[in-house]
Structures are given as C-alpha cells and as structure tokens.
C-alpha cells in the first residue's frame, strides 16, 4: 500500500464537446495521463462549452483537454476560451486533439489554444507536453 501522499498533483479535465460520440481517443489519453501521475477528471460525452467551463472552474484544473472529431473545433475552442475569460478563469490552459487540419490548428493557437495534437501523435508526446507545461507550477501560484 502507498503512503498518503501530500503535495500538488496536476489536474486535467478531459472533455468531449458537442455532437461527437467518438471517445476512444480521449479515454486512451486519459489513461496515459493517469499512468503519468495526473488526476484526470473525465466528464463524458456531449458536453456544452458552458458545462466544460463550469466543471473546469469547480474542479480547479490546470488545463482542459478537449477531444474533437466532429469538425466543430473552430466554434467550440473559441467559445470555451471566451467563457473562461468571462468566468475570470483565463489562467486555465486549453489544449486539445483530434481531426483538426494544420491551418485550423495554427489559427486556434493564435487565438489562445496552447497546443493541438493531431492523429498519429503518441501518448508519450502528449504526456511529455502536459508534464512540462503544468509540472512546474506550485499550489500557491
């Protein structure tokens, strides 16, 4: 048995937004993050941007990982960024993955999405990015 461990954990909300029932990818990534010591809050399918942002605020996550295979990424990512701003929670980092064309990914990054992972990305790459991006922050920050 492990000793109760104190200290900060990286917390990531993983979400599927909109009309998109393909959750295999998000579950694979959630599992990989779990195995890397991350606390993953998984919210399930068909979430509205409002639900994703409210959940992220209540869970006080470091980041939101959005999985999108529906083609609605140019609507849903900006909406989530906007709602985070409205809630005074713009410090919550938004990243994502899915079938997102390169030119769209560039536009989304300029709009404030921290990273987009496209099909074929290894879980190691995603885990490495999450640890680097969120690992250095402290609870008091």
């Amino acid at each position: 048995m492990v000793e109760p461990v104190s200290g900060r954990r990286i917390r990531i909300l993983m979400a599927k937004a909109g009309l998109d029932g393909h959750d295999r990818g998000v579950k694979v990534v959630a599992r990989a993050l779990r195995d890397a010591g991350v606390e993953v809050i998984y919210t399930g399918l068909h979430q509205t941007p409002e639900q994703v942002v409210s959940a992220a605020v209540q869970e006080d996550v470091d980041g939101i990982g959005l999985s999108l295979l529906s083609g609605a990424h140019m609507t849903l990512f900006p909406r989530i960024l906007e709602l985070l701003k409205e809630r005074g929670a713009a410090d919550i980092v938004v990243f994502g993955g899915g079938t997102i064309p390169q030119e769209d990914a560039e536009i989304l990054k300029q709009a404030g999405v921290a990273q987009i992972f496209t099909p074929g990305t290894s879980t190691d790459t995603i885990v490495g990015w999450v640890k680097e991006r969120f690992g250095g922050r402290t609870a008091a920050a």
Partner: peptide, 22 residues
C-alpha cells in the same frame, strides 16, 4: 481512488452528474 503505482487517477463520478454542472 488514486493509482497506488503512478499516483494518478481517473475521477469519473462527475459523468453521472453533468446535468447539474451549470
């Protein structure tokens, strides 16, 4: 629960409660 190996977790209880989120 957290994993006794990695310390990570999948916290999934909330999936059943999403209608109350907003």
């Amino acid at each position: 629960p957290n994993s006794p190996f990695s310390g990570g977790a999948i916290l999934g209880d909330r999936i059943r409660m999403m209608r109350h989120t907003v």
